[in-house]
Computed example of a mutant assay.
Amino acid sequence: MIKMAEQIKVKKQSSIKRNRFLKHFFTYLYMILLSIIIIYPLLITTMTAFKSSDVVAFTLDFSGPWTLNNFKELFTDTLYGTWYGNTLIISIFTMFVQVAVITLAGYTYSRYNFAGKKWSLTFFLVVQMVPTMAALTAYYVLGMLLNGLDHDWFLILIYIGGGIPMNTWLMKGYFDTVPYDFDESAKLDGAGNFTIFWKIVMPLVKPMIAVQALWAFMGPFGDYMTARYLLREEENLTVAVGLQEFISDPKNQQVALFAAGAILIALPICALFFYLQRYFVTGLTAGGAKG
């Protein structure tokens, strides 16, 4: 009986080790495949950006010669600098206004009861189900009525409005995770509604605010369809639309310039990510002590 029990124990330990090995094996295999899918196109774009301007196709070629002429040509022979500035302005305004609106809206929906609360949240979900493609015609007509076509301010309003419905839901959900006991304790200490919001609750939701800011900032850099539909003059384009001009002509595709411009798009996004990264951790504990 003792030997049988020992054999069962050995088999059980062997089965646990085998399952653990298979779990680790497939986990790392998945991570490797995912890394290849992400890194491979990025590597091709980077290699192409440093090749001579006569490159006719994206290629993964580590051989020389390498050059910085493509980056120089972007700002001297094209309107890339103007496009880049337009996009930065749109992204910054969109980020600040959208984050402010959805933060206040999320807090309101989370902490207060008012008439139409349930129906307005449902309306947000319904609006979010409408794809951007279906709304382009409405955006165009609205732009004509407001004389907003080919203007940055109108595109900013479109981005802000499009980001409010779903992001308000996300912010409300995150505010809901903050215990209401913090609010009650602060009220007992004489804190007003704004003090509770700004000094007690806000520090706890910094991770979500940072994520929302990053999403709002990234949107205009990656959006092509809406900007292409609402912007006309070449000097008013965003980088996503402007870069497409480099490869839109099959007979004269400037692949190297396109790759160089695409690489530069990542710089402000990466800078903002590394700046906001601290809030992903510190926000989880900063408000807890105050509560």
Rank of each mutant, 00 (worst) to 15 (best):
A134K: 06
Y174P: 04
I89R: 01
S120Y: 04
S185N: 13
A191G: 04
V10A: 10
D181K: 11
T238G: 07
Q244V: 13
Y140G: 12
F154E: 11
H24C: 01
G192D: 12
L284H: 03
I44F: 14
Y279F: 15
T137W: 03
P220T: 10
T48R: 09
V178E: 04
K9N: 11
K290T: 08
G242K: 05
R228M: 05
K172P: 02
L170Q: 08
Q254C: 01
Y140P: 08
S63E: 14
F62A: 09
K12T: 15
I160Q: 04
L104N: 02
L42H: 14
V97W: 06
I196D: 01
N69C: 09
L121D: 07
Y229G: 01
P207K: 08
Y275H: 01
N193I: 12
F71W: 14
T27C: 05
Y275E: 01
G162H: 03
M202W: 05
M31N: 09
L88K: 02
E245P: 04
T46P: 02
P131D: 08
G283V: 03
T59V: 14
N167M: 13
L267S: 00
M95S: 06
G219E: 08
L125C: 08
Y159G: 01
L276P: 06
P179C: 09
L231I: 13
V97Q: 03
Y84S: 00
I8V: 14
P165W: 07
S120W: 04
W215F: 12
L267K: 00
F182P: 02
